[in-house]
Amino acid sequence: MSSNSIWARMWKKRQIYLFISPFFILFGIFQLTPMVWSFYLSFHEWNGLGAPEFIGLGNYRFLLRDKVFHSALRNTVIYWLANSLAIIPLALILASLLNHTWLRAKRLIRTTVFLPYVTATVAVGLIFNMLFDYNSGLINSLLELIGLAPVPWLTSVQTSKLPVIFLNIWRITPWHALILFSGLQAIPHDLYEAATVDGAGALRRFFSITIPSLMPILFFSFITLTVDAFRIFTEPYILTQGGPANSSISIVQYLYINGFSIFKLGLASAVGYALTLILLIVSFGQIIAMRRESGLMEGN
């Protein structure tokens, strides 16, 4: 294929390039420069004032041996695994429940189950802190009621990740449920009716019609969930501040502390690049694994 014909083909599709151009223009202006700059900065030591000092791979070497970063990495992987296992199935169940045509009070129910994502994080932080409080929290009161010992949810190194995971599932499941629900709405009803006539049960309809039709959206959910889980910040920040003793700290929180409270901006940049690298590996692994189902990389 000669280069001429490529240019000709591109010219023919100029309107399509126009359609996708806003994103790439905005990316070029608002993301690319910061990315290049923070790559440069990741080899420097800088507190935000004066001239950055070149330290080579010093920041990356520090990350390799820093036990707080290791803890952040370990916690983040745990958050990701817990989220992946819980959120998509729950969201799928919720979306399916909502998709029944005979359901009454639809708007009220849909709005109510969506409330966790709407509620301001300041309020959520306070309320989950009270729920999981060791002395007077509702959850421990319930545990005691059924004869179990209270759990130091937020104050023990062993359990502090659990409230973070619960809060994350509670808050993010409605987001994915709404996405999946929009996908369910696009599945034509006659498909189900035909299957019912053929004698397929609810479960078989779910696996032979719903799941395959939903695949592109499910793929979107999986990738988004991975990206979000690796960038988890809000939940540990408002519940435990990453503690006690960094037992619930996440990578972005580690980045945030370095960048915004102790002003080690070079190190924060290095953390950003480490995280990007990890995410690229994990999510492109997912893309390749789900290549066929995702409808990605088809054609051409």
Binding site: Q31, G48, I223, V252, Y256, G259, G272, Y273, S283
Partner: peptide
């Protein structure tokens, strides 16, 4: 490329973003 941009945490580039 578009997917890859989702992987970059924007918090790391705050200073140049501010300059822009």
């Amino acid at each position: 490329l578009l997917l890859a941009t989702m992987m970059v945490p924007p918090e790391a580039g705050v200073v140049p973003l501010f300059a822009i």
